[in-house]
Design a protein around this nucleic acid. Structure first.
Lengths: 222, 222
DNA sequence: ATGAAGATAGCACGATCGTACTATCTCCAG
DNA sequence: CTGGAGATAGTACGATCGTGCTATCTTCAT
């Protein structure tokens, strides 16, 4: 799902390349590719996608600079793949666990709990990758900006649908405007990520949990 | 006040230079200095402090590269001055207007309204400068990181004192934990800034106002 | 008014950036 | 087992980075 943030980004520059004939990969190459990407994603979450450099990435992985370059035929492609790889991790660590809870309000709650847990476990060493990515590109036009917006809309759409689900089940007051509730919940989750990343103190995650459950209590149907 | 974010940052590297004998500035130099700094602050709010380059700054202001460099004797100094200049703007546009309201709850409310207004009026073209700065340096150790933490602590301290003030006046329920209330309010203000910067839609500021006043209503003494 | 000092431009430096081209190695399908 | 193709290193390119040094204006205190 959130991988679309990268796919959309990718498509922008790869429009008329419909053929998409992949040159088949060799196993050792695939291995190295993933190693580089892993390191790149971690680095990018700390320093930002724009700070990632072919040279430093080569030095960090022990691969030669041209070796790194050969895997991603341009820096733009590298950035895309970093974002895509991060999207897959987000999918696996936040979305999927969230959707495993029973439908309705529990699923909504679990989704936000999954996010807080994912921050607390420091899946990315620099805090939530996408929080950083959006902050980095929110004011810069270009394919990444567009992709970031698409990704955010997708998340918002997901949460809204969960809220409507819970409303139809009578678990959330039907007078609540879903978009406003998303705003409140996202504000808390992002702020908890923000403060945890800054101070590395789990107390901030705990505050996030408190604030989330307080909001949920307020909108719960009587 | 928030200027300390830069001053602290500055002090880290300028410790034993107590003499601080300033070479007196010439008027034309002062003028150019400010022009460059203005442009730099705006650019930095969009692209990030780390993306600011002597060369591009020279090109953007029409001053020669070495001319720019002469004003800030290193790139680190330039970054410090950018942060300091942004701090003065924040002080003028958010803190001062906020503190002009009558003491107690009205002052607290006005402070957050000042922030939302400052975002809405796009004082910085890339959204709240410090929201971006913190996100950029939250996971990177160094003088800027330390300064960012100092600045955040200062803001939090200010808000906590306003809350305690309002509690002593009986305007806010005394059972409310000030630190938790700050968390809730800051979550909303930062999220409103975040979404406004991404979408440039004033509706997000309006949502922020709604969310703030809802929180205030909840904690108001009966 | 004059001279010391700040303001500014020009140029050069080593480092690193992204990108290309070439050569060698190593895997794996036939 | 072999040959074609992917994986990887080496090297070089022009551009730009931050930083110095030098020379020529302007300004302003005396």
């Amino acid at each position: 799902m959130l991988t679309k943030i990268a796919r959309a980004c990718y498509d922008v520059n790869m429009d008329e390349n419909n053929i998409t004939e992949q040159p088949r990969r060799r196993s050792d190459g695939e291995q190295t590719h993933q190693t580089i990407l892993d390191r790149a994603v971690k680095l990018a979450s700390i320093e930002g996608v724009n700070q990632i450099t072919l040279g430093r990435l080569a030095q960090a992985t022990g691969v030669s600079k041209s070796g790194v370059y050969a895997h991603f035929k341009s820096k733009e492609r590298l950035q895309m793949e970093i974002i895509e790889a991060a999207g897959e991790i987000y999918e696996r660590e936040v979305i999927e666990p969230g959707l495993q809870a029973p439908e309705g309000l529990p699923r909504l709650i679990k989704l936000y709990e999954s996010f807080l847990s994912y921050v607390e476990r420091e899946i990315f060493p620099g805090g939530c990758f996408f929080a950083g990515l959006i902050s980095e590109f929110d004011a810069q036009s270009g394919p990444v900006h567009e992709a970031v917006i698409a990704g955010h809309r997708e998340w918002e759409g997901l949460v809204v649908s969960l809220i409507q689900d819970a409303q139809q089940r009578g678990e959330i007051d039907s007078g609540v405007e879903p978009a406003f509730l998303v705003f409140q919940l996202d504000a808390v989750k992002d702020h908890a990520n923000f403060l945890y990343t800054l101070y590395r103190d789990p107390a901030w995650i705990e505050r996030g949990r408190q604030a989330i459950s307080r909001i949920v209590t307020q909108v719960s149907a009587t």
